[in-house]
Computed example of a mutant assay.
Amino acid sequence: MKIGCPKEIKPQEFRVGLTPAAVQEAVSHGHEVLVEAGAGVGAGFADDAYAAAGAKLVCVEEVFAQAELVVKVKEPQAAERARLREGQILFTYLHLAPDPDQTRDLLASGVTAIAYETVTDCAGGLPLLAPMSEVAGRLAPQVGAWTLQKANGGRGVLMGGVPGVAPAKVVVIGGGVVGTHAARVAAGMGADVTVLDRSLPRLRQLDEGFARDFKAIYASEANTAELVAAADMVIGAVLVPGAAAPKLVSRSQLGSMKPGAAIVDVAIDQGGCFETSRPTTHQDPIYEVDGIMHYCVANMPGAVARTSTLALGNATLPFMLAIADKGWRKACGDDPHLLAGLNTHAGRLTYAAVGAALGLDVTPAKEALSI
């Protein structure tokens, strides 16, 4: 199979879909790999490394024109969507639920799109989302601490405080992968950390594993409102697989927060979990609403592109090779967890949560295997 890897064109996105090591693996399996010249530079991978691994360096037009399988990181931008075609396979993050324009374009193209974020595993996890969730979670307190600095509009509060001065109060909404990593790092910075979640089993796990580091509290509306009002920083870390993130903090609640408090919305790729969230970029990451500073960068892991690319590549490689070796139908037919990643095929939407979010008809993924 011809595998193509274009350079990411989303603003300040420095990750790349394939590492030279992944190219070498694909070539050893008998596949031809086309990499856009300069695709890996932002993550520290030179063109020479791809050539040495067996890739053919080409222009972006050739990648999309020739590749049977296109491997990316972020959702295809409008210019990239215009190059997709029926019969082609797209393997990348999509986050379709809050993005009707992208959904419409993918359906119109007829492309078979498999989304990293909805591929599952036998434990009920999301193995291709988890590495970036870990990265984003660990970054969240770091960027939140920067947002809290007075020069950036924040309260001027130091995360760990100093002797005689209390540390910052950090509230993490969501106790999954993102939330746990965010809480661990924030606690490591010396902050007073509370994690909110509605799953009692998950709260027990957090209490058993991290009681010395942070508090785990049930996310009732009353508890959430009280803790958010007292917080110096609130990190939104709630995920509903494939669906739009729930809005857990309303604009009216901002009035109860401390002036200059920081919000970090890690769920912004799925629409964000604060009513006042809107996507920002690494170049212009923060904005203010009602005195509260918002950090809502939609590709947070892109800030640490090399670490993120390596972590993502480790997770995606087995699935990418299965698709290339077997073809997408057999690969998905053999692996129900990969089939869960199928979002569009031949003009049909195949993921129920996206259909529910956008009001579109859905063809079950199993039925799409025979289309």
Rank of each mutant, 00 (worst) to 15 (best):
Q283V: 04
P163E: 13
A352P: 02
D325T: 09
A322N: 04
A21V: 03
H31N: 08
Y295H: 12
L18H: 01
M300V: 14
L339H: 09
A230Q: 15
G4I: 07
M159D: 03
Y93D: 07
G327V: 13
V177Y: 04
D192F: 00
V63F: 13
R104D: 13
E208I: 03
G209P: 03
L18C: 02
D48W: 02
G355K: 02
A245C: 08
L90R: 05
R278K: 15
V228Q: 09
G87P: 03
T147F: 05
G156L: 02
D265M: 06
S252N: 05
R155V: 00
P246R: 06
W146I: 03
V297R: 08
L148F: 04
G271P: 07
A151S: 13
S28M: 04
V143M: 13
A298M: 12
S256R: 14
H282F: 12
A46R: 12
A67P: 05
G190F: 00
A261M: 09
Q270D: 06
K169G: 00
V195N: 05
D290N: 13
T276I: 12
R251W: 02
C5M: 15
M1W: 01
V157R: 13
L349T: 00
T147C: 13
R212F: 01
Q270V: 03
C296Y: 08
V249L: 08
I3V: 15
C59I: 08
G188K: 01
V177F: 11
G137Q: 06
G291M: 09
L96A: 11
A166E: 10
A79Q: 14
P163L: 13
D335H: 05
S277R: 11
Q205G: 10
V185T: 14
A168H: 02
Y93W: 05
V171S: 01
V195E: 06
H345C: 14
L34P: 07
N223L: 10
A78I: 08
I323S: 00
E117S: 05
R184A: 10
G255T: 10
V119A: 07
A151G: 01
Q24Y: 00
G161T: 04
D232H: 15
M189H: 01
L129I: 04
G190D: 01
A365C: 10
M189L: 15
V266R: 07
D192N: 05
A78R: 12
D335A: 05
V35R: 06
A108N: 12
M257L: 04
D213R: 09
E25A: 12
G175N: 01
V41K: 14
G154F: 06
D269H: 05
A262H: 04
R15A: 09
S277I: 06
S220E: 09
S256T: 15
A237T: 05
L94T: 11
V177C: 05
D361E: 15
Y218N: 02
R278G: 02
E226A: 15
D232I: 00
I268D: 09
T316Y: 00
T92Y: 02
N343Q: 08
D290S: 13
L339M: 07
G209R: 12
A237H: 09
A229Q: 02
G87F: 07
C273G: 06
G355Y: 06
L349H: 02
R278Q: 14
L248D: 06
E68P: 01
Q205M: 06
A67D: 09
G188F: 02
